[in-house]
Amino acid sequence: MKNYTFLALLILLNFTPIKQMINLLNHFIIPPVNAITQTNQSPVGRIIKVDGKVFLKRHNWSEYYPAFVGTELYAEDKIKLTSQANLMAICYTNWKTWNLPKNKISQTMDGCLQAKSQCVKTPDGCVPLDVTRGINQVTITENIPYLISPRHTFLLPDKPLIFRWNAVANATRYTVIIKSPSEYIWETEVSENKVVYSGEIPLKTGIRYTVIVHADTEVSSLDEKSPFSKQDYLGMGFALISKSQQEEILAKSQELTQNLEGEAMVLSMAELYQKNGLNLEAIAILESFIESGNYTAAIYQMLGEIYQKIQLLKSAKDYYLKSVKLIGIDDVGGKAKIEAALGKVYANLGSKEEAIRWLKLAFNKYEKLGEFQQRDELKLSLEKLQEQLGEE
């Protein structure tokens, strides 16, 4: 079979125009045996409201386990409700809610179509939003004015732009610079660790901007080694989304606020924002919900995930720890996900022993669930960390 496929590809390469060739190639790629499909890899929705007992079974789980608010759903997941239960999910493809029927087994793909690839259109093409979450130690230190906000995010146009950075001990003055890839846009000097952009030079959509902060203690935000890959469009910078994107997102957000309330609305809104790369907006709505006196595992977990994505790992760690304390003992899958994330965050921060402890907890839960790919990935991470400890 492989030989016939190879010959077919050669024929295509000789007679097919380049623009059509890329699409056709996808139909001839043979996945490896037992490979997990893209349908399983990409979440298509999230549970935003649960009343009563709800149970979930993934394609490789041996049995059903309780499901809770905040659980992400994959296309092949199977869900069943007891006669007195209710469940609402938000679907990522159209941002509509899905209310599951009672007394039957439902499959997520019946209610939520497969999610589109997560990317934002930029001058560099369709750029993936997520960043690699591997175990590579990050070199952020407290003695440099590393940027906190806006960091690795798209922004809505026509909103006040506030820059915040880490306050450096003994620093009394900071010089703040905004630059594009081709020119310096703005410069000012302040005594606090934040400043509002004057807006005297309007920022444009489709351009990646970088903020540089120099402290009078002879340290700079440039001293932070970028944790983002060179292929990442945003890096530690920011960009404005287009007017058309803004209108589309605002229309969807208005629909969500009209149809939902409380935690369900906040989770859906934050998901909408971060799926469109608006990490700063997502953080703002989640943290505002907490400031209003609402403390839930799902809200803390989502904040941990966003801070991990933008590589502010101390904040990610703090939110994950709050989430893992609140999550129910029956939520085996949810707890495993947070414990695995904590293990990676601690490893990235250089705390190897603590990382090993959390990764072992997650390893045991994934083995219980039958999530063998996740289990095996954690096993490799554990072996690497244990080897590093032995060398120290």
Rank of each mutant, 00 (worst) to 15 (best):
M1Y: 12
N3Q: 14
Y4T: 06
T5P: 00
A8Y: 09
I11W: 11
I18F: 07
K19F: 13
N23A: 14
N23G: 15
L25P: 02
I29C: 03
P31A: 07
P32T: 15
V33H: 12
N34S: 11
Q38V: 13
N40C: 03
P43W: 14
V44W: 06
G45T: 05
G45R: 04
I47E: 01
I48Q: 01
K49Q: 14
V50G: 05
D51N: 10
K53N: 14
F55P: 01
K57I: 02
N60D: 10
E63Y: 02
G70W: 03
T71H: 08
E72D: 06
L73F: 07
Y74L: 06
A75H: 01
D77A: 03
K80E: 10
L81G: 01
S83N: 11
L87Q: 04
M88F: 08
W95Q: 09
N99C: 06
P101D: 13
I105H: 09
I105S: 09
S106A: 14
Q107W: 12
M109I: 15
Q118R: 11
Q118E: 12
V120L: 04
T122S: 07
D124M: 08
G125Q: 08
C126M: 12
V127F: 08
G134I: 09
V138H: 06
Y146F: 15
I148E: 11
I162N: 11
F163M: 05
R164Y: 13
N166R: 10
A167R: 13
A169S: 13
N170R: 13
T172V: 04
R173H: 15
T175W: 09
V176F: 05
I177A: 00
S182K: 13
I185W: 07
W186E: 03
S191P: 02
K194M: 12
Y197S: 04
G199K: 13
I201Q: 11
G206S: 05
I207A: 00
H214I: 08
H214K: 14
H214P: 00
D216F: 02
V219P: 00
S220W: 09
D223K: 04
K230H: 14
Y233Q: 00
L234R: 03
L234Y: 09
G237Y: 10
A239D: 07
S242F: 09
E247C: 05
E248N: 11
E248K: 15
K252T: 01
E255R: 12
L256M: 11
M265I: 01
V266E: 08
A270L: 02
E271L: 06
E271H: 06
E271P: 01
Q274Y: 15
L278G: 00
A282D: 03
A282M: 06
A284R: 10
S288R: 14
S288Y: 12
G293T: 08
T296W: 03
T296K: 04
Y300T: 04
Q301C: 06
M302P: 01
G304K: 01
Y307R: 00
Q308P: 00
K309F: 06
L312I: 15
S315R: 10
K322F: 13
L326H: 10
I327Y: 07
D330R: 04
G334K: 03
I338E: 03
G343H: 06
K344W: 11
A347F: 05
S351K: 12
K352S: 08
E354L: 10
Y366C: 01
E367V: 03
E371D: 10
Q374N: 10
Q374H: 08
L382N: 01
K384N: 12
Q386K: 10
Q388P: 00
E391K: 15
